[in-house]
């Protein structure tokens, strides 16, 4: 049953980018040929722009708020186009994980949670990784690659 499910809803994860809390791009990876490649510069602009829009949208909420929300608003979470779906997951520490998937992909949030765990393990626990800097951790690449592949 899982197989037919897979055939009808191909789970395609196109790409992942990670943005540090200052809005800088610290990781970018394509998993699939489905999306055209952007230049490095475009990715940097995308990261910075998304970061800014996210901060502004986090301040948008309906005015008469009664009762006040238990959690503060999260800011933009999903962007959709004909070609892709972009899901954002921001951790409480301010790091953002952006997943580009095929438009009908479900469970992007589950994938993102798992990616966060991999990040906590193979990036943050690497004693030589410097916080907020570009991620160059071979073990992270490897585990991320095999996790994403196992889902498609």
């Amino acid at each position: 049953m899982l197989d037919t499910d897979k055939a009808q809803n191909p789970r395609v994860v196109f790409a992942l980018i990670i943005i540090n809390k200052a809005g800088g791009l610290i990781y970018q990876r394509d998993f699939h040929e489905g999306l055209t490649k952007l230049s490095v510069n475009d990715y940097l602009i995308l990261a910075g722009t998304f970061h800014g829009i996210h901060a502004i949208t986090a301040r948008l909420m309906p005015r008469p708020l009664a009762p006040p929300p238990p959690q503060k608003p999260t800011g933009i979470e999903v962007l959709e186009s004909d070609a892709f779906r972009l899901q954002c997951f921001q951790t409480l520490t301010g790091t953002k994980f952006l997943l580009f998937t095929e438009p009908h992909q479900t469970n992007a949030d589950v994938v993102l949670r798992r990616v966060y765990e991999l990040y906590a393990d193979y990036v943050m626990k690497n004693p030589f990784y410097q916080s907020e800097m570009p991620i160059r951790c071979e073990a992270f690449d490897r585990h991320l690659g095999s996790y994403v592949k196992s889902r498609q």
Partner: peptide
């Protein structure tokens, strides 16, 4: 602590404390 917090958040999957 600065590193461990990510592991804590990833594993516990909790939101912000009120």
């Amino acid at each position: 602590g600065m590193r461990l917090i990510e592991d804590f958040l990833a594993k516990s999957n909790t939101g912000r404390c009120a």
